[in-house]
Design a protein around this nucleic acid. Structure first.
Length: 411
RNA sequence: GUGAGUAUAGCUCAGUUGGCAGAGCACCAGGUUGUGGCCCUGGGGGUCGUGGGUUCAAGUCCCACUACUCACCCCA
Protein backbone atom coordinates (compact mmCIF):
# COMPACT_ATOMS: atom_id res chain seq x y z
CA UNK A 1 0.00 0.00 0.00
CA UNK A 2 1.61 3.22 -1.09
CA UNK A 3 0.97 6.74 0.06
CA UNK A 4 -0.72 9.05 -2.46
CA UNK A 5 1.46 11.08 -4.78
CA UNK A 6 2.32 14.44 -3.31
CA UNK A 7 1.35 13.42 0.22
CA UNK A 8 3.87 12.92 2.99
CA UNK A 9 4.19 11.33 6.40
CA UNK A 10 5.69 13.62 8.98
CA UNK A 11 7.74 11.34 11.23
CA UNK A 12 8.94 11.80 14.82
CA UNK A 13 12.47 12.67 13.72
CA UNK A 14 11.11 15.75 11.99
CA UNK A 15 8.35 16.70 14.38
CA UNK A 16 10.45 18.90 16.66
CA UNK A 17 10.87 21.39 13.85
CA UNK A 18 7.14 21.42 13.21
CA UNK A 19 6.49 22.05 16.87
CA UNK A 20 9.04 24.81 17.00
CA UNK A 21 7.57 26.39 13.89
CA UNK A 22 4.04 26.34 15.26
CA UNK A 23 5.16 27.53 18.68
CA UNK A 24 7.11 30.43 17.20
CA UNK A 25 4.19 31.43 15.00
CA UNK A 26 1.73 31.35 17.89
CA UNK A 27 4.03 33.35 20.16
CA UNK A 28 4.70 35.99 17.54
CA UNK A 29 1.09 36.39 16.53
CA UNK A 30 -0.04 36.55 20.12
CA UNK A 31 2.31 39.48 20.65
CA UNK A 32 0.34 41.43 18.08
CA UNK A 33 -3.12 40.40 19.24
CA UNK A 34 -3.92 37.91 16.49
CA UNK A 35 -6.35 35.13 17.45
CA UNK A 36 -6.28 31.59 16.17
CA UNK A 37 -9.19 30.34 14.11
CA UNK A 38 -9.83 26.86 12.73
CA UNK A 39 -12.09 26.54 9.74
CA UNK A 40 -13.12 23.30 7.98
CA UNK A 41 -10.84 21.61 5.50
CA UNK A 42 -13.87 20.98 3.30
CA UNK A 43 -16.01 23.81 1.96
CA UNK A 44 -18.54 24.33 -0.78
CA UNK A 45 -16.80 24.53 -4.11
CA UNK A 46 -18.43 27.86 -4.88
CA UNK A 47 -16.59 29.52 -1.97
CA UNK A 48 -13.32 29.06 -3.79
CA UNK A 49 -14.52 29.65 -7.33
CA UNK A 50 -16.02 32.96 -6.21
CA UNK A 51 -13.28 33.84 -3.72
CA UNK A 52 -10.07 32.76 -5.38
CA UNK A 53 -11.30 33.50 -8.88
CA UNK A 54 -12.92 31.42 -11.59
CA UNK A 55 -10.08 31.91 -14.06
CA UNK A 56 -7.15 31.12 -11.75
CA UNK A 57 -5.11 27.96 -12.16
CA UNK A 58 -6.03 26.93 -8.66
CA UNK A 59 -9.73 26.85 -9.43
CA UNK A 60 -9.40 25.74 -13.03
CA UNK A 61 -7.25 22.69 -12.54
CA UNK A 62 -5.83 22.24 -9.07
CA UNK A 63 -8.74 21.67 -6.72
CA UNK A 64 -9.71 18.41 -5.05
CA UNK A 65 -13.38 18.69 -5.89
CA UNK A 66 -16.02 15.98 -5.62
CA UNK A 67 -19.72 15.47 -5.02
CA UNK A 68 -20.67 14.46 -1.50
CA UNK A 69 -23.40 11.91 -0.82
CA UNK A 70 -26.01 14.62 -0.96
CA UNK A 71 -24.89 15.57 -4.45
CA UNK A 72 -23.28 18.82 -3.39
CA UNK A 73 -20.02 19.92 -4.96
CA UNK A 74 -17.42 20.25 -2.21
CA UNK A 75 -13.70 21.03 -2.28
CA UNK A 76 -10.71 20.45 -0.02
CA UNK A 77 -9.45 23.95 0.69
CA UNK A 78 -6.64 25.00 -1.67
CA UNK A 79 -5.87 28.08 0.43
CA UNK A 80 -6.98 29.57 3.72
CA UNK A 81 -8.20 33.08 3.13
CA UNK A 82 -11.56 32.25 1.56
CA UNK A 83 -12.54 30.08 4.51
CA UNK A 84 -11.57 32.69 7.06
CA UNK A 85 -13.52 35.36 5.20
CA UNK A 86 -16.56 33.09 5.11
CA UNK A 87 -16.22 32.46 8.84
CA UNK A 88 -15.80 36.19 9.46
CA UNK A 89 -19.05 36.91 7.64
CA UNK A 90 -21.04 33.94 8.98
CA UNK A 91 -20.13 34.58 12.60
CA UNK A 92 -20.51 38.36 12.47
CA UNK A 93 -16.99 38.90 13.64
CA UNK A 94 -17.15 42.52 12.50
CA UNK A 95 -18.66 43.06 15.95
CA UNK A 96 -15.72 41.45 17.71
CA UNK A 97 -13.04 43.63 19.27
CA UNK A 98 -10.50 41.31 17.67
CA UNK A 99 -10.53 41.30 13.93
CA UNK A 100 -7.08 39.87 13.42
CA UNK A 101 -6.82 36.13 12.94
CA UNK A 102 -4.45 33.34 12.10
CA UNK A 103 -4.64 29.66 11.25
CA UNK A 104 -2.25 26.76 10.85
CA UNK A 105 -3.23 23.75 8.83
CA UNK A 106 -3.19 21.68 5.68
CA UNK A 107 -4.15 22.86 2.20
CA UNK A 108 -4.71 20.72 -0.89
CA UNK A 109 -3.82 21.37 -4.49
CA UNK A 110 -3.74 18.80 -7.25
CA UNK A 111 -0.42 19.74 -8.83
CA UNK A 112 2.61 17.83 -9.99
CA UNK A 113 4.87 17.62 -6.93
CA UNK A 114 8.42 18.94 -6.97
CA UNK A 115 10.88 20.41 -4.50
CA UNK A 116 8.93 22.61 -2.10
CA UNK A 117 5.60 21.64 -3.58
CA UNK A 118 3.21 18.98 -2.36
CA UNK A 119 -0.43 18.12 -2.92
CA UNK A 120 -1.11 18.32 0.78
CA UNK A 121 0.95 21.10 2.30
CA UNK A 122 0.62 23.29 5.35
CA UNK A 123 0.29 27.00 5.74
CA UNK A 124 0.45 29.48 8.54
CA UNK A 125 -1.95 32.17 7.46
CA UNK A 126 -2.75 35.57 8.91
CA UNK A 127 -5.75 37.77 8.08
CA UNK A 128 -6.77 41.18 9.38
CA UNK A 129 -10.08 42.87 8.60
CA UNK A 130 -11.62 46.29 8.61
CA UNK A 131 -8.56 48.51 8.43
CA UNK A 132 -7.76 50.51 5.36
CA UNK A 133 -4.73 52.26 6.75
CA UNK A 134 -1.34 51.50 5.26
CA UNK A 135 0.18 51.04 8.72
CA UNK A 136 -1.55 47.68 8.88
CA UNK A 137 0.13 46.64 5.65
CA UNK A 138 3.45 47.39 7.29
CA UNK A 139 2.44 45.47 10.42
CA UNK A 140 1.62 42.42 8.34
CA UNK A 141 4.98 42.45 6.59
CA UNK A 142 6.73 43.09 9.87
CA UNK A 143 5.05 40.17 11.62
CA UNK A 144 5.87 37.87 8.75
CA UNK A 145 9.49 38.96 8.72
CA UNK A 146 10.01 38.77 12.46
CA UNK A 147 8.50 35.31 12.58
CA UNK A 148 11.00 34.10 10.01
CA UNK A 149 13.80 35.81 11.92
CA UNK A 150 12.79 34.01 15.09
CA UNK A 151 12.97 30.72 13.23
CA UNK A 152 16.57 31.55 12.43
CA UNK A 153 16.06 31.95 8.70
CA UNK A 154 18.53 34.15 6.87
CA UNK A 155 19.16 35.26 3.31
CA UNK A 156 15.58 36.21 2.68
CA UNK A 157 14.50 39.10 0.55
CA UNK A 158 11.21 40.92 0.56
CA UNK A 159 9.72 41.98 -2.73
CA UNK A 160 6.72 44.26 -3.00
CA UNK A 161 4.50 45.59 -5.73
CA UNK A 162 1.35 47.54 -6.38
CA UNK A 163 -1.17 45.59 -8.43
CA UNK A 164 -3.95 48.16 -8.45
CA UNK A 165 -7.65 47.56 -7.92
CA UNK A 166 -10.63 46.60 -10.09
CA UNK A 167 -10.94 50.27 -11.10
CA UNK A 168 -7.45 50.75 -12.49
CA UNK A 169 -6.02 47.30 -13.18
CA UNK A 170 -8.20 46.63 -16.25
CA UNK A 171 -6.79 49.75 -17.93
CA UNK A 172 -3.30 48.50 -17.32
CA UNK A 173 -4.11 45.02 -18.54
CA UNK A 174 -5.60 46.48 -21.68
CA UNK A 175 -2.51 48.53 -22.40
CA UNK A 176 -0.26 45.60 -21.59
CA UNK A 177 -2.19 43.40 -23.94
CA UNK A 178 -2.02 45.80 -26.83
CA UNK A 179 1.70 46.24 -26.23
CA UNK A 180 2.42 42.51 -26.31
CA UNK A 181 0.01 42.07 -29.22
CA UNK A 182 2.60 43.91 -31.35
CA UNK A 183 5.25 41.29 -30.55
CA UNK A 184 2.94 38.31 -30.56
CA UNK A 185 4.95 36.32 -33.10
CA UNK A 186 8.15 36.59 -31.06
CA UNK A 187 6.64 35.47 -27.75
CA UNK A 188 7.04 31.91 -26.53
CA UNK A 189 4.11 29.52 -26.83
CA UNK A 190 3.21 29.86 -23.17
CA UNK A 191 3.12 33.62 -23.43
CA UNK A 192 0.93 33.49 -26.52
CA UNK A 193 -1.63 31.75 -24.36
CA UNK A 194 -1.06 34.15 -21.48
CA UNK A 195 -1.76 37.07 -23.77
CA UNK A 196 -5.48 36.41 -23.53
CA UNK A 197 -5.72 34.68 -20.19
CA UNK A 198 -3.43 36.78 -18.03
CA UNK A 199 -1.01 39.19 -19.69
CA UNK A 200 0.49 40.05 -16.29
CA UNK A 201 2.11 36.63 -16.34
CA UNK A 202 4.18 37.51 -19.39
CA UNK A 203 6.10 39.93 -17.21
CA UNK A 204 7.20 36.94 -15.17
CA UNK A 205 8.28 34.70 -18.07
CA UNK A 206 11.77 33.21 -17.92
CA UNK A 207 12.20 33.05 -21.68
CA UNK A 208 14.93 35.47 -22.85
CA UNK A 209 13.05 36.97 -25.75
CA UNK A 210 9.92 37.44 -23.67
CA UNK A 211 12.01 39.03 -20.94
CA UNK A 212 13.51 41.61 -23.23
CA UNK A 213 10.14 42.43 -24.74
CA UNK A 214 8.67 42.68 -21.24
CA UNK A 215 11.37 45.03 -20.05
CA UNK A 216 9.91 47.80 -22.23
CA UNK A 217 6.30 46.99 -21.47
CA UNK A 218 4.13 49.62 -19.85
CA UNK A 219 4.52 49.83 -16.07
CA UNK A 220 1.60 49.53 -13.72
CA UNK A 221 2.63 52.66 -11.87
CA UNK A 222 1.63 54.69 -14.90
CA UNK A 223 -1.91 53.36 -14.68
CA UNK A 224 -2.90 52.91 -11.06
CA UNK A 225 -5.59 55.21 -9.71
CA UNK A 226 -4.83 57.85 -7.11
CA UNK A 227 -6.19 55.74 -4.27
CA UNK A 228 -3.98 52.77 -5.06
CA UNK A 229 -0.97 54.95 -5.68
CA UNK A 230 -1.31 56.89 -2.43
CA UNK A 231 -1.81 53.73 -0.46
CA UNK A 232 1.18 51.98 -1.97
CA UNK A 233 3.48 54.93 -1.47
CA UNK A 234 2.35 55.15 2.15
CA UNK A 235 3.10 51.46 2.71
CA UNK A 236 6.61 51.98 1.40
CA UNK A 237 7.16 54.89 3.76
CA UNK A 238 5.85 52.86 6.69
CA UNK A 239 8.12 49.95 5.90
CA UNK A 240 11.11 52.24 5.79
CA UNK A 241 10.07 53.85 9.06
CA UNK A 242 9.92 50.55 10.93
CA UNK A 243 13.15 49.37 9.37
CA UNK A 244 11.98 46.71 6.96
CA UNK A 245 14.17 46.38 3.91
CA UNK A 246 12.44 45.57 0.65
CA UNK A 247 12.86 45.63 -3.09
CA UNK A 248 10.24 46.77 -5.52
CA UNK A 249 9.50 44.22 -8.19
CA UNK A 250 7.13 45.60 -10.82
CA UNK A 251 6.83 42.09 -12.24
CA UNK A 252 5.57 40.58 -9.00
CA UNK A 253 2.20 39.02 -9.74
CA UNK A 254 -0.06 37.04 -7.47
CA UNK A 255 -1.97 34.03 -8.69
CA UNK A 256 -5.14 34.67 -6.79
CA UNK A 257 -7.70 37.14 -8.12
CA UNK A 258 -8.66 38.75 -4.84
CA UNK A 259 -5.48 40.73 -4.26
CA UNK A 260 -5.56 44.51 -4.58
CA UNK A 261 -3.08 47.35 -4.16
CA UNK A 262 -0.20 46.14 -2.03
CA UNK A 263 1.27 42.67 -2.46
CA UNK A 264 4.51 41.15 -1.21
CA UNK A 265 6.59 38.00 -1.21
CA UNK A 266 9.39 36.78 1.01
CA UNK A 267 11.81 34.79 -1.09
CA UNK A 268 14.86 32.60 -0.63
CA UNK A 269 17.11 31.20 -3.31
CA UNK A 270 17.96 28.12 -1.27
CA UNK A 271 14.89 26.14 -2.25
CA UNK A 272 15.26 25.63 -5.97
CA UNK A 273 12.46 26.83 -8.18
CA UNK A 274 9.89 27.25 -5.40
CA UNK A 275 11.61 29.99 -3.48
CA UNK A 276 8.61 31.87 -2.17
CA UNK A 277 8.41 31.16 1.51
CA UNK A 278 5.69 33.63 2.43
CA UNK A 279 3.38 35.78 0.37
CA UNK A 280 0.41 37.99 0.83
CA UNK A 281 -1.26 41.27 0.23
CA UNK A 282 -4.40 43.30 0.47
CA UNK A 283 -7.84 42.05 -0.59
CA UNK A 284 -10.14 45.00 -0.09
CA UNK A 285 -13.06 43.61 -2.10
CA UNK A 286 -13.11 39.98 -1.03
CA UNK A 287 -15.45 40.26 1.95
CA UNK A 288 -18.05 42.03 -0.12
CA UNK A 289 -17.56 39.61 -2.98
CA UNK A 290 -18.39 36.71 -0.67
CA UNK A 291 -21.55 38.40 0.56
CA UNK A 292 -20.38 40.45 3.52
CA UNK A 293 -20.43 44.18 4.10
CA UNK A 294 -17.70 46.04 2.24
CA UNK A 295 -14.66 45.45 4.45
CA UNK A 296 -11.01 45.83 3.60
CA UNK A 297 -8.69 42.94 4.41
CA UNK A 298 -5.07 42.00 4.26
CA UNK A 299 -3.08 38.88 5.04
CA UNK A 300 -0.29 36.54 4.19
CA UNK A 301 0.45 32.84 4.17
CA UNK A 302 3.69 31.00 4.80
CA UNK A 303 4.45 27.53 3.47
CA UNK A 304 5.35 25.35 6.44
CA UNK A 305 7.21 22.68 4.47
CA UNK A 306 9.34 25.36 2.85
CA UNK A 307 10.11 26.99 6.19
CA UNK A 308 10.94 23.66 7.76
CA UNK A 309 13.38 22.82 5.02
CA UNK A 310 15.23 26.04 5.81
CA UNK A 311 15.32 25.55 9.57
CA UNK A 312 18.56 24.05 10.79
CA UNK A 313 17.81 21.37 13.26
CA UNK A 314 19.36 19.30 15.93
CA UNK A 315 16.71 16.86 16.85
CA UNK A 316 17.66 15.21 20.07
CA UNK A 317 15.79 12.41 21.68
CA UNK A 318 14.70 13.18 25.16
CA UNK A 319 13.94 10.43 27.60
CA UNK A 320 14.85 11.04 31.20
CA UNK A 321 14.48 7.49 32.52
CA UNK A 322 14.79 4.25 30.65
CA UNK A 323 13.41 1.38 32.73
CA UNK A 324 15.36 -1.78 31.97
CA UNK A 325 13.09 -4.46 33.38
CA UNK A 326 14.00 -8.08 33.17
CA UNK A 327 10.94 -9.36 34.96
CA UNK A 328 7.95 -8.11 36.86
CA UNK A 329 7.12 -5.37 34.38
CA UNK A 330 4.24 -4.26 36.54
CA UNK A 331 6.54 -3.12 39.33
CA UNK A 332 8.54 -1.08 36.79
CA UNK A 333 5.38 0.43 35.40
CA UNK A 334 4.31 1.39 38.92
CA UNK A 335 7.65 3.06 39.66
CA UNK A 336 7.60 4.87 36.34
CA UNK A 337 4.04 6.01 36.77
CA UNK A 338 4.75 7.43 40.22
CA UNK A 339 7.84 9.17 38.94
CA UNK A 340 5.93 10.94 36.16
CA UNK A 341 3.26 11.88 38.69
CA UNK A 342 5.68 13.49 41.09
CA UNK A 343 8.42 14.83 38.82
CA UNK A 344 7.14 15.39 35.30
CA UNK A 345 10.16 13.51 33.99
CA UNK A 346 9.71 11.36 30.92
CA UNK A 347 10.03 7.62 31.17
CA UNK A 348 10.30 4.72 28.78
CA UNK A 349 9.49 1.32 30.19
CA UNK A 350 10.92 -1.70 28.37
CA UNK A 351 8.43 -4.54 28.30
CA UNK A 352 10.31 -6.67 25.84
CA UNK A 353 12.37 -9.48 27.21
CA UNK A 354 15.89 -8.66 26.05
CA UNK A 355 19.40 -8.98 27.40
CA UNK A 356 20.50 -6.25 29.79
CA UNK A 357 23.19 -5.35 27.34
CA UNK A 358 20.74 -4.75 24.54
CA UNK A 359 18.58 -2.67 26.85
CA UNK A 360 21.52 -0.51 27.87
CA UNK A 361 22.30 -0.04 24.20
CA UNK A 362 18.77 1.11 23.60
CA UNK A 363 18.91 3.49 26.56
CA UNK A 364 22.03 4.95 25.04
CA UNK A 365 20.39 5.39 21.64
CA UNK A 366 17.43 7.10 23.24
CA UNK A 367 19.87 9.47 24.85
CA UNK A 368 18.36 8.64 28.23
CA UNK A 369 19.73 10.50 31.25
CA UNK A 370 19.22 7.56 33.59
CA UNK A 371 18.66 3.86 33.30
CA UNK A 372 16.70 2.13 36.03
CA UNK A 373 17.66 -1.53 36.22
CA UNK A 374 15.29 -4.01 37.78
CA UNK A 375 15.85 -7.74 37.51
CA UNK A 376 15.95 -10.86 39.59
CA UNK A 377 18.68 -9.69 41.99
CA UNK A 378 17.03 -6.36 42.57
CA UNK A 379 13.66 -7.91 43.19
CA UNK A 380 15.12 -10.33 45.74
CA UNK A 381 16.94 -7.54 47.57
CA UNK A 382 14.16 -5.01 47.32
CA UNK A 383 16.28 -2.47 45.41
CA UNK A 384 16.65 -0.87 42.02
CA UNK A 385 19.86 0.23 40.30
CA UNK A 386 19.85 3.79 39.04
CA UNK A 387 22.54 4.37 36.48
CA UNK A 388 23.57 7.83 35.40
CA UNK A 389 24.16 7.35 31.68
CA UNK A 390 26.11 10.56 31.22
CA UNK A 391 28.50 10.03 34.12
CA UNK A 392 28.58 6.25 33.87
CA UNK A 393 28.01 5.87 37.60
CA UNK A 394 25.35 3.85 39.30
CA UNK A 395 23.95 3.23 42.75
CA UNK A 396 21.65 0.78 44.45
CA UNK A 397 18.56 2.29 45.99
CA UNK A 398 15.99 0.68 48.26
CA UNK A 399 12.87 0.40 46.20
CA UNK A 400 10.83 2.40 48.75
CA UNK A 401 13.37 5.23 48.56
CA UNK A 402 13.52 5.40 44.76
CA UNK A 403 10.74 7.91 44.25
CA UNK A 404 11.85 10.28 47.00
CA UNK A 405 15.47 10.14 45.78
CA UNK A 406 14.69 10.87 42.18
CA UNK A 407 12.25 13.66 42.90
CA UNK A 408 14.90 15.30 45.06
CA UNK A 409 17.47 15.01 42.29
CA UNK A 410 15.62 17.51 40.11
CA UNK A 411 14.82 20.10 42.73
C1' G B 1 -0.87 18.54 -18.49
C1' U B 2 4.67 18.83 -20.73
C1' G B 3 10.05 17.63 -20.54
C1' A B 4 14.47 15.39 -18.50
C1' G B 5 16.75 12.11 -15.01
C1' U B 6 16.50 7.99 -11.66
C1' A B 7 14.70 2.93 -9.90
C1' U B 8 19.83 -2.87 -6.76
C1' A B 9 19.26 -4.78 1.33
C1' G B 10 15.53 -0.77 6.27
C1' C B 11 18.85 3.87 4.51
C1' U B 12 22.93 5.89 1.13
C1' C B 13 24.84 3.83 -3.01
C1' A B 14 28.83 0.47 -5.97
C1' G B 15 28.15 -3.39 -9.63
C1' U B 16 33.64 -3.17 -15.54
C1' U B 17 33.30 -5.98 -22.43
C1' G B 18 26.38 -9.58 -20.44
C1' G B 19 29.09 -14.81 -16.64
C1' C B 20 27.49 -17.20 -8.72
C1' A B 21 24.16 -9.87 -6.25
C1' G B 22 28.15 -6.27 -3.13
C1' A B 23 29.94 -2.13 0.46
C1' G B 24 29.06 1.48 4.26
C1' C B 25 25.43 2.75 7.77
C1' A B 26 21.30 0.67 10.54
C1' C B 27 19.38 -3.88 12.94
C1' C B 28 20.45 -8.66 15.76
C1' A B 29 23.97 -11.83 18.36
C1' G B 30 28.74 -12.89 20.48
C1' G B 31 33.60 -11.22 22.42
C1' U B 32 32.23 -9.20 28.34
C1' U B 33 27.30 -15.87 31.54
C1' G B 34 23.51 -8.80 34.46
C1' U B 35 25.61 -2.99 32.18
C1' G B 36 25.52 1.60 26.77
C1' G B 37 29.17 4.61 23.93
C1' C B 38 35.01 2.81 21.19
C1' C B 39 36.89 -1.73 19.11
C1' C B 40 36.77 -6.88 17.07
C1' U B 41 33.93 -11.24 15.12
C1' G B 42 29.65 -13.24 13.16
C1' G B 43 24.35 -13.10 11.53
C1' G B 44 19.64 -11.99 9.38
C1' G B 45 17.80 -9.69 5.62
C1' G B 46 17.10 -8.96 -2.19
C1' U B 47 10.66 -11.13 -6.90
C1' C B 48 17.83 -6.12 -8.77
C1' G B 49 10.44 -1.12 -9.76
C1' U B 50 6.65 -4.28 -13.07
C1' G B 51 5.80 -6.97 -17.64
C1' G B 52 7.69 -8.63 -22.09
C1' G B 53 11.92 -9.30 -25.72
C1' U B 54 17.24 -10.59 -27.44
C1' U B 55 20.83 -14.40 -25.58
C1' C B 56 23.53 -20.70 -23.82
C1' A B 57 23.38 -16.82 -19.98
C1' A B 58 20.40 -10.18 -18.39
C1' G B 59 21.03 -6.05 -12.38
C1' U B 60 23.74 -4.97 -17.10
C1' C B 61 21.23 -4.76 -23.97
C1' C B 62 16.03 -3.55 -26.37
C1' C B 63 10.60 -2.27 -25.81
C1' A B 64 6.39 -1.00 -22.88
C1' C B 65 4.35 0.33 -18.27
C1' U B 66 4.57 2.23 -13.23
C1' A B 67 6.68 5.01 -9.37
C1' C B 68 9.93 8.68 -7.60
C1' U B 69 12.96 13.19 -8.39
C1' C B 70 13.91 17.76 -10.66
C1' A B 71 12.22 21.36 -13.98
C1' C B 72 8.15 23.81 -16.97
C1' C B 73 3.27 25.56 -15.85
C1' C B 74 1.66 27.57 -11.35
C1' C B 75 2.29 28.61 -6.39
C1' A B 76 3.11 28.72 0.04
Amino acid sequence: MDILRGFKDILPQEIKRWQKLEETARETLKLFGYKEMRTPLLEKTSLFSRGVGEATDIVEKEMYTFLDKGGESVTLRPEGTAGVVRAYINNHLENSPFRKFYYIGPMFRYERPQKGRLRQFHQIGVEAFGIQDSALDAEIVYIDKIMLDKLGLTDLRIEINNIGCPDCRPKYLKSLKSYFEKYKEKLCDDCKKRLNRNPLRILDCKNKTCKSIASNAPKIHEFVCDGCKTHYEAVKKNLIKIGIKFEENPHLVRGLDYYTKFVFEIITDKLGAQGTVSAGGRYDNLVEQLGGKPTPGIGFASGCERLIELMNYNEEQDIDYYFACMEDYTTCLKLAKELTDKSNKSVYVEYESRSLKSMMKKANKMNANFAVIYGENERKNGIVIVKDMKKSTQEEIKIEKFLENEVKRWQ
